[in-house]
Design a protein around this nucleic acid. Structure first.
Lengths: 339, 339
DNA sequence: GGCGGTTACTTTTGCGCATAAGTTGTACGC
DNA sequence: GCGTACAACTTATGCGCAAAAGTAACCGCC
């Protein structure tokens, strides 16, 4: 690895001159010298030592992407196919802007923060953080942060959240189910916080607007831990006949549920209609193909990265960015109007 | 961010003493002093500035994970659910060893190498690289490299490849199909290089060992680009009746194919048997559940990282590490013996 | 013809850390 | 009571870079 010093020596000039050429400072170096240096740089294939540069400039050109991984297989965010698409969107965007991405996967927010401090990361994108975590992070960390799909941060100043209009998406889906004649619609999820809550609210609102009463028994809770999943699915399937449709909080759950139903001889959409949310490969490749709410995961990644980049260049960004969704009607919903 | 210098000043001692405590150099600092420093460090929540440390030590504690992303949706490696699992395995392992992971996703190997040089990355894990790329990389890069699923590197010295015993896995699967009475077995893939070639060879070997002749028309080529995929699938489905079984090079293709077959009224496994390779969520959640060859992707990630770590500590590692596979018999193969 | 301004440089400093080299003080052996 | 050994420090140096401060030459101008 050749250094500026060595180049300066070989070219018989000072390191500052070389450095100035590298940084394109016009007017501070004569065209002749510039050309000479540039050619030499190319010849020796010079690459700067980032550690030295960062040390001198007190910046890092690193953006941290922290994924909060949970302990268990089904709970583990990283399992979902869409995570890698999201990562890809972020990486591409920041790389094009001259930044690098450091990836942390951890369930320990404290550990993540230590890394962040050590590396003097310029900014952070947080994904999969639960409510309190995001807030705790903010207290220690004075640099730009963008959260993805974190609802709890409204009102906090130096945050921007990039998410979906989950409530609207769920509202649209529930309305669609109702338009197809469904009245007994369950909502399946594993919790009632954040994104899940927003989707639940959208669903409830659609019921209400159509004068359908929501009962707490309409909420089906799936327990995604490996040791619980089977019992949980059994329980849900045994209650399937109470409903004409189940609205799942994600495609992953929708497809998991459909497999469980099929294993018990319950046909989709003949016996029951199932819908998801996300529109990922799982639902696209399932037969019957899953009716779901589409979100563009890659642009979610890109938007998050763009937003962070904006903050890094000193611009203000809104507290909430809600990306649109749209319905994708495929084949897991039966029209029961003519019954 | 508090520095060693500042700590030393406040504690009224030299930076070297503080540094020695941080590095746990026993015998060079008295227990009293040590304790005093340690308490202070904890109190102020000291984190070292990695740029300064790396600059002083000429190392980076960074491991690069480079994914070669291809241009198109279906071709894009990052789409496959198992990629994020692999990333997770690598990240966890190196983090536990005190390293950090820098992720590059790029189709431009030159760009990746520039990053690698700039950051003075200690080691590299390459995934999804085609044959030549890996070799080109090696010429420029003198540090430890671990390739994942790259077959072309045999014989090259400072490489280790971590992969599967693909040939054996495919051999086992083809043998199983034959044991179920199948004689007209197609092999579906998008290329005949690297991993795909090894799997193809295993399949051919099993045919040969069972005195079944392989014809070149038994190789079904899927063209995964968005603009080709439909036509490609149509073509393959139209030839389905020529075979009793199709062995797909991946679960992704197997599930994609099954969806296409179903759309054309061809039932699996009644009309044709389909098997995959990888054992990911796609096949697990499909109904009928996919018979496939299992690979443990997470341990592939862990093994790759472990191997690199070994190299970093100066140990020799073998040129090839082949992880075992095993058959997972589910419901997409029909036993046609009693016909 | 001395002075401000500009161009094209060079010298110097310091970022935060690790470490080689140097400095005390003290215990111990003979 | 003198040399040696060692423990427990401190001082000084340099990693590669950016940038502030310094220098020297030249040009124009009243």
């Amino acid at each position: 690895m050749i250094t500026i010093k060595e180049i300066a020596k070989q070219l018989n000039m000072s390191t500052t001159t070389v450095s100035n050429v590298i940084h394109g400072k016009a007017g501070e170096v004569s065209p002749d010298t510039r050309k000479k240096v540039e050619e030499f740089l190319k010849k020796v294939d010079y690459v700067p030592n980032i550690n030295a540069r960062n040390l001198a400039q007190n910046e890092s050109k690193i953006i941290g992407l922290a994924l909060k991984a949970r302990a268990d297989k089904y709970e583990n965010l990283i399992m979902d196919p869409f995570v890698s698409v999201l990562i890809g969107g972020v990486e591409e965007t920041i790389r094009n802007a001259g930044y690098f991405m450091m990836l942390y996967i951890s369930s320990d927010i404290g550990e993540i923060m230590r890394h962040v401090s050590t590396w003097n990361v310029d900014g952070l994108i947080l994904f999969g953080m639960l409510d309190d975590d995001g807030i705790r992070v903010s207290e220690k960390y004075k640099k730009p942060i963008v959260c993805i799909d974190t609802y709890s941060i409204e009102g906090l100043k130096h945050f921007t959240n990039v998410g979906l209009d989950d409530e609207q998406g769920a509202y649209d889906m529930a309305s669609y189910l109702i338009s197809q004649g469904h009245r007994k619609i369950a909502f399946l999820s594993d919790n009632t916080k954040g994104v899940d809550l927003a989707r639940l609210n959208g669903y409830k609102k659609a019921l209400q607007d159509n004068k359908i009463k929501f009962k707490s028994s309409d909420f089906l809770q799936i327990r995604p831990r490996t040791e619980d999943i089977e019992a949980s699915l059994e329980e849900i399937c045994s209650r399937a006949k109470e409903f004409t449709a189940i609205m799942c909080v994600s495609d992953l759950y929708a497809v998991t549920l459909m497999a469980a139903l099929e294993d018990r001889g319950i046909s989709v959409p003949e016996d029951i209609s199932i819908v998801g949310f996300d529109d990922n490969m799982l639902g696209q490749l399932h037969r019957p193909a899953l009716t779901t709410v589409h979100q563009d995961v890659k642009s979610k990644g890109i938007t998050s990265a763009d937003t962070l980049l904006k903050q890094l260049s000193g611009k203000k960004t809104p507290n909430q960015i809600k990306l649109p969704t749209h319905l994708v009607i495929r084949n897991t919903v039966r029209n029961i109007n003519k019954n």
